[in-house]
Amino acid sequence: MATEALGWWGVPLAIVAGTLRGSVPFLFVSLGECLTEKSGKINLGLEGTLLMGAMSAYAISFLTGSPWLGVVTAGVAGLFLGLIHGWLSQQPRVNDVAVGIAMIIFGSGLAFFLGKPFIQPSAPQLPTFSLAGWTQIPQLESALRISPLFILGVAIAPLMQWFFRSTRWGLLVRAVGDSPDAARAMGISIFKVRMASIVAGSFLAGIGGASLSLFYPGSWSERISSGQGLMAVALVIFARWNPIQCLFASLLFGGAQAIGPAMQSVGIDAYYYLFNASPYILTLLIMVITCSPKRTLTGAPGALGQAQE
């Protein structure tokens, strides 16, 4: 057990570590939401999906002893919630934001309801590996310990980018999201494309939940998500519907989460409520600086959130 303290170096280290471990749920949910919104629908209910994913992953990992099976189950649980959202939000006169809010309540209620027996037990966690095999400093070793889910998420971001840019399916999704009328004229089923995008997006969000309960903080409790799902949905707007920028936004947010506690551990203990709010303040500031009324948001799907005819 190493006994040297890191002192001030602990703050950047904690931020790096927080980036690597705290960003995973943001990453998956925002990528899922990015896919959903590219097709022209908003799924605000991913907070509920995240919790459902966290619960089911933990439960299955505990019951079967296989965390990977838990991850898959989390995705499938997300998929089912996505089916509800995809079907309901595409009914005439039904607003997708409203469905999303109802789905937050339904999803988290269901997760809490079914998750009661799994608060107590300890479930097997996903294996992690360290990027810092070369170092003898245990702090660094621990900070650079990352989850395969993180790698997966980082890999999905450029893949999704490529998907949107260069594949026929990606074009379909974008066409449906930008100008449904044109897409319809091309003979594309708007319903099916949007349904597929929502379901796939929810699948990803479910996996994001698995990372909460099986990687970091690695536990199931009803307070496990402090609004990460909702925040990640908002990050998509921040990231201008660009998967690569979703990745950066998630990393930024995950890292900023670590600022408050890390500052206190080196003795900066004033205003810790405000320090704890730093991820939100930071994001808002960046938005205020980078947005401009002179240009519309590039990348915004043209038909986003518009009512179904």
Binding site: A102, I105, G109
Partner: peptide, 10 residues
């Protein structure tokens, strides 16, 4: 359980 009311609401 306490979460029932949330399911009901949903």
């Amino acid at each position: 359980p306490d979460a029932t009311v949330m399911v009901f609401q949903g």
